[in-house]
């Protein structure tokens, strides 16, 4: 009888503790749950496209400023508001006549993210 109690109690404890762990893990694996970060990336890293994405995981709605420069020379400066947890795609239209480095600098409060491509 006592061995049955041990087995049943062990199974119950395992189910309860694993259920709790599952819930905690699921929350922690959310990009936004108790986290504060952003990310900027090119949509097509394999070609010359300059389409890029900003993801807001700062835990609140944030305003991002993005500047586009060609060979360190600023050609455009824009602002965009992104909701908490939202993904914003941006499609800049730039006419390049020669090889250049195109840099996209995204800032929000004291954060700065820089991506660039050497366009041939």
């Amino acid at each position: 009888m006592s061995s049955k109690i041990i087995i049943i109690a062990t199974i119950i404890f395992l189910i309860v503790s694993f259920s709790v762990l599952f819930v905690i893990e699921t929350k922690n694996h959310d990009y936004d749950y108790k986290k504060s970060w952003s990310v900027v990336y090119f949509e097509n890293p394999r070609d010359n496209s300059l389409d890029f994405t900003i993801e807001n995981h700062e835990g609140e709605k944030s305003e991002y400023n993005y500047e586009i420069s060609i060979d360190e020379k600023k050609i455009s400066d824009n602002k965009i508001e992104i909701e908490k947890g939202a993904v914003q795609k941006i499609y800049p239209i730039i006419d390049l006549e020669k090889s250049a480095r195109v840099t996209i600098e995204v800032t929000a409060d004291d954060l700065k993210y820089r991506i660039y491509k050497n366009i041939q």
Binding site: V40, Y41, I115, N118
Partner: peptide, 22 residues
């Protein structure tokens, strides 16, 4: 890594950077 001209930086977050060799 940003100082090396052979690379493009294609991804930038608080914690990670990804570079592509041109």
């Amino acid at each position: 890594f940003e100082k090396y001209p052979d690379f493009s930086k294609i991804y930038s977050s608080n914690y990670l950077s990804i570079f592509k060799r041109n």
